[in-house]
């Protein structure tokens, strides 16, 4: 374990997490108005109706897969009676299908963004950077799976990458676990860290406000004018009288 490993697998993750969390707090505090999907459906919907659900549903499955693979320890699934074989096949099949759907969806969306005039005009430099990083992460992730688990003999990331991932969250980071992982997995993880670091400053923030509350709230929302206190909150000590 050398210094580079510590930088890559200890310092970088904590940096990325810090930027991710504080970035979101900062943006929520200072840029609520900019917190939006910035949908371009008004301009074009034929391609969007194929590409966008393909990408989004794909990436949701990918997200679930990552939770299953990284967060849940191998011992738990084994205790639940899921054999290594069964897990492996499910993960590879589901992961590949979802990954291909995600990548295909993203390809359609990027094609649309480049070729449809109004959509391209509405694309900022920020968006372009985000698309590049996002595409990189997905391509590397899919490549790692294909190389290791479809073409290759199979790589059990649940004994190396997953414990490393969890070790970050209980503050006992173990870079050695990650240092030995195949390069594609390493690159995928690093690019993902980059994505998390730029996340709060891109349009990806819309994910954190996914409207699940809609399922339970009453249909019609009433709000009193009293709730709207002008464009800023009164400072402490200056609250209006009741």
């Amino acid at each position: 374990m050398n210094a580079l490993d510590v930088v890559l697998w200890v310092v970088a993750p904590y940096l990325a997490i810090t930027v991710f969390v504080l970035g979101h707090v900062w943006r929520y505090r200072y840029d609520k108005f900019g917190w939006t999907t910035r949908s371009s459906q008004m301009y074009e919907s034929r391609l969007l109706r194929i590409g966008s659900p393909l990408f989004h549903f794909g990436i949701l499955v990918v997200l679930l897969g990552h939770i299953g693979g990284l967060v849940i320890p191998k011992s738990w699934t084994e205790a639940a009676g899921v054999s290594e074989e069964a897990y492996h096949i499910t993960a590879v099949v589901l992961g590949t299908v979802a990954g291909v759907a995600t990548l295909g969806g993203l390809a359609i969306l990027i094609y649309r963004r480049r070729t449809v005039g109004p959509v391209f005009t509405a694309t900022t430099r920020n968006d372009k950077l985000m698309y590049a990083v996002l595409a990189l992460v997905i391509v590397l992730g899919l490549a790692a799976t294909v190389a290791a688990n479809i073409i290759g003999g199979g790589y059990d990331y649940r004994t190396t990458i997953s414990p490393w991932f969890r070790s970050i969250f209980y503050f006992q980071p173990d870079p050695a676990l990650m240092a030995g992982a195949p390069p594609l997995f390493q690159l995928h993880a690093l690019s993902a860290l980059l994505l998390f670091a730029i996340w709060p400053f891109t349009r990806l923030v819309h994910m954190l406000t996914a409207p699940v509350g809609y399922l339970t709230r009453p249909y019609v929302v009433y709000r009193s004018r009293d709730d709207q206190r002008g464009s800023r909150k009164p400072r402490r000590g200056w609250e209006p009288t009741r």
Binding site: T209, P211, G213, Y214, R217, Y219, V220, V221, Y222, R223, S224, R225
Partner: peptide, 14 residues
Amino acid sequence: VASCPSGAMYKRSE
């Protein structure tokens, strides 16, 4: 208002 997933639309009670 009922369609808004975010709950951003509202009817002023006053």
